Simulated assay, not measured.
Amino acid sequence: MQRKLVLMIVAGILCLSLAGCGQSGDTQPEEEDPVQSQQPVDESSEADSSEEETQGPADPEAPETAQYTDNFSVDEAAVTAFAEQIQTAVADKDLEALADLAAYPLYVGFADGGQSVESRDEFIALGADRIFTEELLSEIAGADTEGLEASMAGFSLSASGRPNVIFGVADGRLAIVGMNY
């Protein structure tokens, strides 16, 4: 009964957030901002800053240095690469690597109740046996890492829906923000 209630609440929040994504709230035509149009634009510095945001780091081996503003600003290649890192950590049952990919506090929704994990040490203390269930291993191994769709909550990595690992932008970088069993 509790699981159904939690599932209904999550579904309701998801529906409300998705309904709000498509509405701008302003039906009047956009006008040019007079302050913005009066200021001279240094095109070279603007291009440099936007290039850094969208392309990520110069070193492809260090994806965590990329700075993103939200889940919709992350390019598909970075999403795929991060999802593959999660798959590798889960397949190897590497709790340390999985902990390094997470942002804290981290929501972990176990079947017997969810909890907020406040630190890396607290996550590791949960133990590999509790984190790496057979169901999670199967779902993450079977998940397609390409073409994951961005949402306000992030990206859901799973073969069929649940269990799953949710990751998204946290503090300007991609990180695991939730796990559901």
Rank of each mutant, 00 (worst) to 15 (best):
A103P: 04
A125V: 09
A83H: 07
D92Q: 15
V108G: 01
E139T: 06
T65K: 15
E122A: 14
E61G: 10
F123T: 06
D92K: 14
A62G: 00
A66N: 02
L95M: 04
L137I: 12
E64Y: 10
A62V: 15
D112P: 00
L101I: 04
F123H: 04
D59C: 09
F82L: 03
F110I: 08
D94W: 09
D70K: 09
L136I: 10
V79H: 02
E122T: 08
Y68E: 02
L126D: 08
Q85R: 15
E84H: 11
T80K: 14
A89D: 03
V117I: 15
P57F: 12
D144V: 12
S73G: 07
V74K: 08
Q67H: 13
F72L: 12
E61M: 15
I124Y: 02
A128G: 11
A99I: 10
I131D: 01
A81M: 11
A78I: 09
T80I: 10
S73D: 11
F72T: 07
A78F: 01
T80R: 11
Y68G: 01
A103S: 14
L136R: 00
V74T: 09
L106E: 00
A81F: 04
A91H: 03
L137P: 09
L126N: 04
E118R: 11
D59F: 07
R120M: 04
N71Y: 01
L101Q: 07
A125W: 06
G109A: 14
I86A: 00
R130K: 14
P105Y: 06
P57H: 13
P105N: 07
T65R: 14
P60Y: 05
A102D: 06
T69Q: 14
G127P: 06
S116L: 15
L136K: 06
E76Y: 00
E76N: 10
I131G: 00
V117H: 07
A128F: 06
D121P: 02
V79S: 02
E122K: 04
P57N: 12
G114W: 00
P63F: 02
E84C: 08
G114C: 07
P105V: 06
A91I: 04
G114M: 05
R130V: 11
G109S: 12
L98E: 01
F123R: 02
L101V: 00
A97P: 01
A81E: 12
T133I: 01
Y68P: 01
V108K: 02
I124L: 08
P57G: 15
T65C: 10
A102C: 13
I131M: 06
D100G: 14
Y107Q: 11
E61Q: 15
K93S: 14
D144T: 13
R120S: 11
G113E: 09
T133K: 07
F123N: 04
N71K: 03
A58T: 14
F72I: 05
Q87C: 07
A66K: 05
F132I: 03
P60L: 10
A103R: 07
D75C: 11
Y107K: 13
S138R: 12
T133E: 02
D70V: 13
I131N: 02
T88R: 11
Q85D: 13
V79Q: 05
T133A: 07
L101H: 05
D70Y: 11
S119A: 06
P105S: 04
E61P: 01
D112N: 12
D121N: 12
A102T: 08
Y68T: 06
R120A: 03
Q115D: 10
F110V: 02
P63E: 08
Y107S: 13
A125M: 04
